[in-house]
Design a protein around this nucleic acid. Sequence first.
DNA 1: GTTATACTTGCATAGTGACGCAAATGAGCA
DNA 2: TGCTCATTTGCGTCACTATGCAAGTATAAC
Lengths: 121, 121
Amino acid sequence: MSKRHATSRTTACCDLAGILPPRFFKALGDPNRIALLARLAACGRPCGVTEMAACCPIDFSVTSRHLAILRDAGIIHSEKRGKEVHYAVRFQEISTALRAMADALDGCCPSRKTKAKGTTK
Amino acid sequence: MSKRHATSRTTACCDLAGILPPRFFKALGDPNRIALLARLAACGRPCGVTEMAACCPIDFSVTSRHLAILRDAGIIHSEKRGKEVHYAVRFQEISTALRAMADALDGCCPSRKTKAKGTTK
DNA sequence: GTTATACTTGCATAGTGACGCAAATGAGCA
DNA sequence: TGCTCATTTGCGTCACTATGCAAGTATAAC
């Protein structure tokens, strides 16, 4: 964050598309995946696919696929332990990403630009 | 901050599904919609559908539909002015929502729970 | 009233995603 | 080696979504 004048702020605004990755949002756009994520978060520890599948009314294989989609989107993280695969929520990464998006939007907001000079935080 | 002990924090975690609305994410899950949102944000002022459509390689009617989807998801806001419909980004609402999601996730994070007692904010 | 402009909606089509079942893969165990 | 458990992958089906075209609606100008 070195050069930060009017022009750079406009540029940052145009770059909004780069900060908002469709794949991330697409991964979170399914109710079952949100349910899985919530369950995984509530669990408080890495969980296997079998354990996760128990909470959803969908086929076991579908649960596995949903978890893979969430993993590919960088939302959860998988680790192989013996014959099990343990999934865990990437709390830090997601919240950082969400805050970065919020900051980017604040940086674009016309009223913010006029009122305050710097971005929030 | 009235009753906020271990149990309530666990409850907040289970409620994650309520804080992460699929429709919001679904709306942001399309590249063209992200492009439209970025364009609208870069514009810095309310824009009509015709003006927005110029930036996307899709049919005019599709642009209109995409904007409607973004509006129904609470991401943008529409206002009729004469025969034009002006769309504008709801900067404040989105960034607030994103930060709320980030906070909720932080509140669920096991390491945070152990280290710090209160939730962020 | 008629015409032009701005936008929305109906409809058909192609592409994508979610789903369940069954088979395949991989790791531990007898 | 053969067996079992945990998970992934292939495949067909159904549903939803994005898209373009054409028709419809609403508002302003003539």
